[in-house]
Simulated scan of single mutants.
Amino acid sequence: MGKASSGKRAAKAGGTRDHTVPQMYLKHFAQHVARRKYELKVRRLDKINKPFTVTPTGIAAETGYYWGISAEGVPHHHVEELFTSLEGHAETVLKVLLTDPDWALTPHWPLSPDQRHVLAWWMAAQILRTTRQRKRLTHQQTEAPDITDLPQEVHTLAQNNPHLRYIVENIVTLALILEARPWALGFSDMCLLTSDTPIAIWNRPDDEDQLRAAALSDILLPLDPHRFLFLPGPATRGTDRRKHVDHLMHAEGAIGFALVEVAYDVADQFVIHHPEHDPWKHWKPNSPGQPKPWDGQTHAAPQYILEYGVFPPSQNIERRWTMEHPPPRSPDDLHL
């Protein structure tokens, strides 16, 4: 990517067009409609009932998002190239998880230590790079200096510097925290969505100490319309020894709805789903989401508690259920 992106850098324009959510990740929620053409359904939170179609390249991108030099002297393009490298390695692991020809839950689970290491680093980057993370950091700067009179290039640098510094300072420790935790690979009967905040740190999405939050909270990463990674926190693991190591889970019924709700609640500006796997066919948001103090929101934060059973490693779910949906139940069935 280094040579390809360097030609796009334009200091006068304030930098490149940078993606805040990886395109390769979004493609797993996209419909392949033609050669090299993928489409997503996007719903902006302020117009939630007006979905529109977009390509993975046309969403979650901002000009000059990583522009600037961190306090450690790391140029923006080095951070961008780090993300690109992480994405390339992570895509190989995601293919292992999502492309088995027969089964929804890959027989190659648990992942190898090297594969877990790759995915943990990539997940750490996704937690740290989001627009929600940047707004949280900016909001904490209660005594930020007045930079309104500075030139636009310097203004952008000053705004981006804290976020770049935060990423550089925390990505190694966060990756180690994630790697050390038990992971569950799951299948959801309910169609899943993702957002511009693809990884949900349950109950603590905007905690001032994000490393502590990642160590103590349940963590959800939707992988495609029906698969996800779930990292149970200490309270959710409890005394169930099966949850203290990597395992499988099947999100049936209300659990699937809860996963959609959690993913929705942490979105910053919009949510994303597959055009043919639309959660809105069975679900509607029933909470105001996690409050955004930077937008003046003061409502109580929703809290989640999840109880689930470990899916037997000797069983699996046919891959076709990642693409097909059972027919709607009759009214008589609903009363059983």
Rank of each mutant, 00 (worst) to 15 (best):
K3D: 11
S5V: 15
G7V: 13
G15R: 00
T16F: 07
Y25A: 08
A34Y: 02
R36Y: 14
R36M: 12
K41L: 13
R43V: 11
R44P: 00
K47P: 00
I48T: 03
N49C: 12
F52T: 08
P56V: 06
A61G: 09
Y66G: 03
A71R: 10
P75A: 09
H76I: 00
H76P: 03
F83C: 08
A90C: 09
A90P: 06
V93A: 08
W109G: 06
L111N: 07
S112W: 00
Q115C: 07
R116C: 07
L119Y: 04
A120V: 01
R129L: 08
K135Y: 06
Q140H: 15
Q140P: 05
T148Q: 12
Q159L: 10
N160I: 04
P162R: 02
Y166Q: 12
V168N: 05
E169T: 08
L174S: 13
L176W: 02
I177F: 01
W183V: 04
F187S: 01
L192T: 04
L193S: 01
D196M: 06
P198L: 03
I201L: 08
D206A: 10
L211W: 02
L220Y: 12
G233E: 02
P234L: 10
A235V: 12
T239L: 11
D240L: 06
V266N: 01
D268E: 15
F270G: 02
F270K: 09
P275W: 10
D278I: 07
P291G: 07
K292R: 15
H299M: 10
E307T: 14
F311L: 03
P313Q: 09
Q315R: 12
N316S: 15
E318T: 10
P328G: 07
